[in-house]
Design a protein around this nucleic acid. Structure first.
Lengths: 165, 165
DNA sequence: TATAATTGTTAGCCGTGTCTAACAATTATG
DNA sequence: CATAATTGTTAGACACGGCTAACAATTATA
């Protein structure tokens, strides 16, 4: 309940814009206001005003009618959001068995609010599930072992897999 | 990324107020504006204006300088938020091993944005972890079994526990 | 290349949810 | 019970992040 958190630098909205720009710009592609607006489901003027704010914050380079590009700092922030996004999607999809669609949607929301501590744990959890996928007796203990030692317990190899179904 | 979600009825802020009122009102205790404001870390005028809006939406009964009480509808919403809150806290604390403090903080944020599908899965996941806590070989398969049948597989009983540590 | 289509920007509005300052009601206490 | 302390409300401001309408620049095409 209590609101006393040590705030993130960026708002959720700003993170969304940075993430979108990073994704659209993959492979040196030119990024357009229109594309951003479609990707985020907002109108173009909203994008323009967001870009203005992000420029002021030196997270984005943008000149009127011109190119849109993340600054190194903006790129750093975007990469971090994307990292959280991917980890959360994997968690919902792989670990919980949620459909990709919903997993993506939830990741989009949660990526802006989750603490870094929980984020790191979730990443480790998914890594554990994926690395030690089937023949893993005694799950929580093994997970604790993994958290503590950073590697899988000896008897967690894929060799001991027994397929079901 | 894409914003096309079918919105919740209430805003995150409204849910916070309802949750706070429900928690403060436990056991017929009188709820005060001051308490709500302290619990949520906002000033009293913010509470007053939130109560006004919640009254209009018929989620709260409130008269000037008078009592504050959830309507049946408001109570229903509050219970649901609290249910999500508790499940998330359990997930972070029990399943991921996060400290209670951080688990609470993250639950507070995520309870407002997670889809009901993911929420239900998370609840089941925690139930599974707690019910099938130690001697559980073949974790993901057993989890799938649990999801599919709604009950633990035969060989998941607490009888087969081997304590570690 | 002139004009049409598209894309982008500006201006200004709105709802949400905070805040402070000033005032009002209630409650406690000398 | 009068007054001080506390609690609650109102009024008005502000930041955020959307939106529409109108206009400007760019790009495509007849």
């Amino acid at each position: 309940m209590v609101k006393q958190e040590a705030q993130r630098e960026q708002t959720a909205s700003m993170e969304d814009y940075l993430e979108a720009i990073a994704n659209l710009g993959e492979g040196r592609k030119v990024v357009r206001v229109k594309q951003i607006s479609e990707m985020l489901g907002v109108k173009m003027p909203s994008v323009t005003s967001a870009l203005k704010k992000l420029s002021e914050r030196e997270l984005v380079e943008h000149e009127r009618y011109g190119h849109i590009k993340l600054t190194p700092e903006g790129d750093k922030v975007a990469r971090d959001v994307i990292r959280r996004h991917k980890a959360l999607t994997r968690f919902f999809a792989q670990a919980l068995g949620i459909n990709k669609e919903t997993a993506e949607e939830d990741a989009c929301k949660i990526e802006h609010v989750i603490s870094s501590l929980s984020m790191e744990r979730l990443v480790k959890f998914v890594e554990f599930i994926e690395a030690c996928p089937l023949g893993s007796a005694n799950f929580p203990s093994r997970y604790e072992y993994y958290l503590e030692h950073g590697e899988l317990p000896r008897d967690c190899s894929k060799r001991s897999v027994r397929k079901r179904k």
